[in-house]
Design a protein around this nucleic acid. Sequence first.
DNA 1: TTACTTTTGTTAACAGTGTTAATAAAAGTA
DNA 2: TACTTTTATTAACACTGTTAACAAAAGTAA
Lengths: 203, 203
Amino acid sequence: MGIAERKIRQKEEFRTSILEAAWQQVISDGWQSLSIRKIADAIEYSIPVIYNHFENKEAILLEFTKEGFQKLADTLQLVKDQYAIPAEQLEAMAHAYWDFAFDHKEYYQLMFGLGIPACDRVNEIEELKNATSIMISSIKAAIEQSNQPETDYFLKYHTYLSILHGLVSIQMIQKEGKPDSAKKMILQDAISGFIISINRINA
Amino acid sequence: MGIAERKIRQKEEFRTSILEAAWQQVISDGWQSLSIRKIADAIEYSIPVIYNHFENKEAILLEFTKEGFQKLADTLQLVKDQYAIPAEQLEAMAHAYWDFAFDHKEYYQLMFGLGIPACDRVNEIEELKNATSIMISSIKAAIEQSNQPETDYFLKYHTYLSILHGLVSIQMIQKEGKPDSAKKMILQDAISGFIISINRINA
DNA sequence: TTACTTTTGTTAACAGTGTTAATAAAAGTA
DNA sequence: TACTTTTATTAACACTGTTAACAAAAGTAA
């Protein structure tokens, strides 16, 4: 019987309409200003219906966090596929990471900024693992081709991500709008140093 | 007349008692849980008295932000003074920065985490400038002693800070407690790369 | 000491927030 | 049509930051 199917479909539509209304709110007024009441108001339903589709507000935020990590993963994969040499992949992905952060500032702030409260579950996000594995595989490849193939790839990945996140978040705190492209030199500088640190002989 | 002096003294005591009560709250339940009402309750006064001493909640947070940056500045200066060679200063300060972040997690999260809302005024904090100048002077000295004394020291400072903040914040998101000392190798790895990138010949 | 002014503190409220229990309405099933 | 299940609503609870109106205490001057 098609009734059940229609119900599921309607439920799904309802769900996405909640997310769309929420996203609209975030775009215009930021995460801090997002509230269940405003969402309910936007979709022209009463407040408790939202709790039929999401356990709580955090669940809504988690949804966007996942979305954000998947978008990042897709972006990284797309860029990575354009290069064959691991070092070039890492450099290109670094720039893509930077661009993603500032082109999708709302996502990024949720993924890494407001994520502190929900940090217990942050490692269980599948979409995060996707993004992670894309970067790690390039790191591994770069290490294998280097003069010191015994290097701890997980350590290097951690360093790589930390540099990227550090650059982005420091930049985001200091400047309100998009950073001038000259500031991307800092990224270039740091990432060059990182890549060299993989390739160089440990003297 | 001593009355005015006593009043100023009392006002100052009141102010610090508010901050102490707030800090107590933060230590036991974190920043998210800090509220004006709880502070008022702790000092056994009604709510509005707090607004006689602080314009709003953000002003209280700003006070702790300043405190945090000054503590960081003091720590960095102390460590820096133990070394004469700029590169060694940078390495030692990096470790001190890391230790500060995890020994004073509450401060650090406020200084860099929740600072996003108040990011307009973050550059006007004098205590932040103190910490900054301590690091910058070492960077400058290191560049002057290097093979490329024309390097943009502000760019390098930015890179230095970004690496540090990136390492700390990524680590803080992932692990709840203090990171095992093995994780400090990541810091060592990244900072070594950075120092080499200052000294090396730009081939 | 008394009358007045200023400072300081309190109560009560406003405008929000996330969340949920009780209840009404609608939809599906027999 | 009668019953059951799903869905939506109203109203409330327990919070939040902030402030206006008012009472009490403290300081000042005659």
